[in-house]
Design a protein around this nucleic acid. Structure first.
Length: 509
RNA sequence: GCCGCUGUAGCUCAGUAGGUUAGAGCGCUAGAUUGUGGAUCUAGAGGUCCCCCGUUCGAGCCGGGGCAGCGGUACCA
């Protein structure tokens, strides 16, 4: 006790909301990214990359140095004291890029982009402070066909990723319709005093999925107290106004019933509630055109549906908004897994820089969230790339020979590695086991004398071990291994890998 | 941000009205087995008992204050 000095050691730990990503996930995600890229490319979008951080004012955030430092974003100062922020999405940097290079770009400008984004928020289940998005945007046209196309692109993307029809839904709404219905409830949106009220109303509607109609109703009125006792102040609407809004939300909902409404059913329901609001009419007309285009493409409401309670980002979207989610297909009352993609029309973003309106619309796949959901649903094809064959080092003097074997296998296109540790054979076997190696290659003095190598099939061996209780038998029986001439090494290893790698798909579920 | 719950080994947790060197299972390392992953047995490594202050002869346990994690809620481009 006396001589024990207290060394201060750093505790190995991850920053809040961050995570490490293992080999299996990297492989799976890279495959997903490749698939998404293919779909986006097929629609004619071109790739673009922009840096991880931008000047803070570019991203549209207030300077984070005063009363609310780093609110929502991660920020730091350059040596010239200018504030920089890590990007929190891929859209704001796109707006900067377009504004900066406007004259030279083809209009409409269509680009796709993927990469990590960061948000300085409280992490939760399925919510991290770094995650990957994959965006496609069409900038420079107010044609609703661009919005319809992005919805189709989204559907095609989930399909290509192996999400079967019926297991995803893209729900579409239009911000103009929301504004219209608020106006028709007697709230004048031209009155600046009603600005905050409008936001509160939309936030309330946005919570329909989570809180249900009752919760929305409370939030439109006085407010709501949650189960932890926390209280959220409501919009303070009058009973008649609340009834009107609730009525509107309900009208176009299938009530979770079996008979899904068609898109035009929903539009008709909306229309009867909309009254004379010009903004609302605009929004309705836009959705009608989208419906025509989608229907002409043979896409029904089971894939792309209209849903008047979809809201999305508040000060951001100006027209159609979309949200994609995965759903269990096995019926039951299993909860939704949350949004795995979203987008919409944002006609004001580029104007921040240029003064002129540059209409734009985009869709973003939440890659990290989607991966997690597919994982949870067991929809990720688990055919991991085969682990390397391991060449055991039986005699350290012959390291060069072993290395040559590894090299021979690699030339033949087989992943192979010579054991690089310094432990004995038992430890090497454990190593190979932990690595998931399909086989190990053994050449000790005996094999060398005969000009042979021994191949041990680790996967078969594991299977056989379950039937052997006696260690003596297990060790001496040397199950699942065989010897071949040195010249037949490649062929023998390839056959073992083929035996397992090319096995029946779906059999191991 | 607000409300609630929880902090003891890598993980899951015990810990006796406050009392010597703080435990178990799993995991890890190694031996039993001169060249073989599993099983079994054995041994070993690994801990500022979240932190600080206080009460006490004495605190993992009691009191106060922090911090962190989890859950709910708010915000979410």
């Amino acid at each position: 006790m006396s001589g024990k000095k207290r060394e201060i050691r750093p505790k190995p730990r991850l920053p809040k909301g961050m995570r490490d990503i293992d080999a299996a996930e990297i492989r799976a995600v890279e495959q997903m990214l490749g698939t998404i890229r293919q779909v986006y490319e097929s629609y004619g979008f071109e790739p673009l990359d922009t840096p991880a951080f931008e000047y803070t004012d570019t991203l549209g955030k207030f300077l984070p140095d005063q009363d609310r430092p780093n609110e929502g974003v991660f920020s730091f100062q350059d040596e010239d004291e200018q504030w920089l922020s890590l990007r929190y999405d891929l859209t704001a940097p796109l707006a900067r890029f377009v504004a900066q290079n406007y004259d030279g770009l083809p209009k409409p400008f269509r680009r796709y982009q993927t990469g990590p984004v960061w948000r300085n928020e409280k992490p939760g289940p399925g919510r991290f402070r770094q995650f990957t998005q994959f965006d496609a945007d069409t900038v420079g046209t107010d044609n609703v066909a661009a919005d319809a196309e992005l919805c189709m692109l989204a559907a095609d993307t989930y399909k290509a990723l192996g999400v079967p029809r019926g297991s995803y839904t893209i729900r579409v709404n239009n911000r103009k319709i929301l504004d219209g219905i608020i106006e028709s409830a007697g709230i004048d949106l031209r009155d600046a005093n009603n600005h905050a009220k409008r936001l509160t109303i939309m936030r309330a509607i946005d919570k329909l999925d989570r809180l249900g109609l009752g919760g929305v109703e409370q939030l439109l009125g006085e407010g709501r107290k949650d189960e932890s006792g926390d209280y959220t102040k409501g919009a303070g609407l009058e009973a008649a106004q609340i009834a009107k809004l609730i009525d509107f939300i309900t009208a176009a909902r299938g009530d979770g019933g079996s008979g899904a409404m068609t898109r035009s059913d929903v539009l008709n329901a909306i229309e009867t509630h909309l009254g004379e609001s010009a903004t609302g009419r605009d929004g309705l007309d836009e959705l009608r055109i989208m419906d025509e285009l989608l229907s002409a493409a043979g896409i029904g409401a089971d894939q792309i549906a209209f849903e008047p309670a979809i809201v999305r980002g508040l000060e951001y979207y100006t027209g159609p908004v979309f949200e994609a989610e995965l759903t269990y297909s096995d019926g039951g009352d299993a909860p939704s897994l949350g949004s795995v993609g979203s987008g919409g029309r944002y006609d004001g973003l580029v104007a921040r820089f240029k003064g002129v309106e540059v209409p734009a619309t985009g869709f973003s796949v939440g890659v990290s969230r989607l991966y997690a959901s597919l994982q949870k649903l067991g929809k990720l094809n688990a055919d991991r790339a085969s682990a390397p064959a391991i060449i055991l080092v039986m005699d350290k003097e012959r390291t060069a020979d072993y290395y040559k074997m590894a090299s021979t296998l690699r030339v033949a296109g087989i992943r192979a590695e010579m054991y690089l540790g310094t432990s004995g054979m038992k430890a090497q076997m454990k190593y190979a086991d932990k690595r998931g190696a399909p086989c190990v290659i053994i050449q000790g003095g005996d094999e060398k004398a005969r000009g042979e190598v021994t191949i041990k099939d680790m996967i078969l061996g594991e299977k056989l071990s379950q039937e052997i209780a006696d260690n003596q038998e297990w060790r001496e029986g040397q199950p699942a291994q065989f010897s071949v001439k040195e010249g037949e090494l490649v062929e023998a290893v390839a056959s073992v890998i083929a035996r397992h790698g090319g096995s029946k798909p779906g059999a191991d579920k």
